[in-house]
Write a protein that binds this DNA or RNA. Structure first.
Lengths: 161, 161
DNA sequence: GATATTCTCTCGCTCAGCGAGATACTAGGT
DNA sequence: ACCTAGTATCTCGCTGAGCGAGAGAATATC
């Protein structure tokens, strides 16, 4: 983490800060997962499922596996796990009966809130120290960094194959 | 990711943007790792080792394991892996001969640059669209979010035990 | 110098995720 | 209607990351 590499290019310090934030987020997620007997993948899946649920987008094993970069076998085991934990339920799609629709159980929503709720509150509280204009700047900055990272990602993929 | 949940509290949008950035970072790391035959843990270890190296802080299996939340057995296997890949070398500490010092090989530094270099360049490029005052705001904002997340983390830990 | 402590490693195990392929359904051409 | 190709999910067997328990070796404490 090395928070003491101060006297450098401000832009490099920002890169470092971005990484620091992601490290903190990941640690938070990992500890939450461990505390609830979930694997990191299970938590990622839970997040994806709750996102899809809120957006009213139907989720299937195929989509979920693609999003988490798991192959079909791994995806099946993952869903077995989540089902055993009572977080998700499988239902055959009536219109395309090859498909399985994944619906989140109430327990999953509650679990999600128990994770995000406190964390979001803390973040919102920390934002009180910033004015509207500053928050706007921060938002544009983060958006720019997200798209830049995504670009770097597809760029690297294209370059290496 | 659901980038279309626009008309909400700006502060909530910011939380979402933060998460989006971490997701992108993690995807980038995962794809880099996969492309080089590394496991996610190996890459995290590589980063920790390079950080320690640049800070001239001696690294040992114990420290590394603690940082990555691995137990001693897992740490040993991890270092075996990194050693087999020629990224790190074990050396017994002469002053305390229970210890092993981990020194990074040249190959590890090169690998690290081949990962961070392009990504950093892209990020720096995207920062050109922002003025010094805006970058300063962004930096303070990220620092605040990092400490808030860290606080939320230890808070949750204390609360749950 | 006996005892407790610290650091690393070994052994045996569990289980997440992979590759290959089976199964079941749909779509498209004829 | 039938045959083929394509798509979605699951089963089976396997590899290997990481864990718990504990051994071994060095240091610190009394």
């Amino acid at each position: 983490m090395s928070t003491e590499e101060s006297r450098t290019d401000p832009r490099l310090r920002l890169v470092h800060q971005l990484r620091a934030v992601t490290v903190e987020f990941d640690l938070l997620a990992a500890e939450f997962a461990a505390r609830h007997g979930l694997h990191p993948t299970d938590l990622r899946a839970l997040i994806a499922l709750l996102d899809a649920d809120r957006a009213e987008r139907p989720m299937t094993p195929g989509r979920l596996g693609a999003q988490l970069r798991l192959n079909s076998a791994g995806t099946t085991t993952l869903i077995d796990r989540l089902e055993r934990l009572g977080l998700v339920r499988r239902e055959r799609d009536t219109t395309d009966r090859r498909r399985v629709l994944l619906t989140v159980e109430q327990r999953a929503v509650e679990l999600g809130w128990s994770f995000f709720g406190p964390a979001i509150d803390t973040l919102l509280g920390a934002m009180d120290a910033f004015g509207p204009a500053e928050l706007d700047t921060a938002e544009r900055f983060l958006a720019a960094m997200a798209t830049a990272t995504a670009a770097s990602r597809t760029d690297a993929a294209r370059h290496h194959l």
